[in-house]
Amino acid sequence: MSKEKPKNLSIKKEAKQRSLKTHQKVTNVIVYIILVIVSIIWITPFVMIVLESFKGEATCPTDAIIPRQFSLKNYKALFNIGVEKKDEIKFFRWYMNTLIMSCVCAIIQTFMVLCMSYTLSRMRFKGRKFLMNFMLVLGMFPGFLSMIILKKVMSGWNMIGENAVWGLIIIYTASSAMGYYVSKGFFDTIPKSLDEAARVDGATRATVFFRITLPMAKPIVIYTLLTAFMGPWGDFMFAKYIVNNATDGMNVAVGLQNLIATSEGLAAHYTHFCAAGVLVAIPVTILFMCLQRYYVEGVTGGAVKG
């Protein structure tokens, strides 16, 4: 949908050179062109992934973007239809693992973040400054370091390998309350007058939280649910370390990276990777687009003051 250049621009320009309006029009056209080019740059890689996922002729990277013969072979191979036993891919299992993880994580993480952010934003209690600074300092340590010990503890509770899903859920959600900035920023914008009024009528802090603040915090709740849901889809480092080579316990990121890590793997599974990428991206994108209004509001409203 590239905008074609207006053909008789030069003649119009002389006629309206002086007036501010044409100056305005010219800059607008330039801005439109820039926007078109920039959006093409941003969208092309995804278009290429989709195109390559339909490539029928070879599974290794070839020099053509548009496939010579379209076929759903790659999508079928992902679900082991028409594929010998020895080339099977456990994509469905990885996909379900990640789905379970993201749903459970979304719920628990939202609960954690809301508790922390509401308390820090609304209530003035001793040690509030100390707690915020303490969490800031904790955030400065590289996360991977604690993974080494957490893997041993998780293996003690038999939550690595096949049932790495539960181990990872605990690890993702346990200290997720440290990411409270955005929602705290949002709670700061809710005026306090309503709370005082309710408090005066004898409502306990809990009722204030559940009946007044929470309903008004719908955007931030959805924002946190969404970001928490997106987390497990993108995590690679922790998942690879905890899964300990058990293909049944992998999430999508580790599984696909494992598939195309070796050069033989890349040659045999490159287009399968593209197809898997499309299958993973579509549902997450659709969910994201529906809740985009809240996401934008959360980011613009909250993140700024965090």
Binding site: W42, I43, F46, M230, W233, G234, F236, V252, A253, L256, Q257, V280, A281, V284, T285, L287, F288, M289, Q292, Y295, V296
Partner: peptide
């Protein structure tokens, strides 16, 4: 915004 939606990996 759509490009944010696609998982980073």
């Amino acid at each position: 915004v759509m490009t944010i939606a696609v998982p980073q990996f």
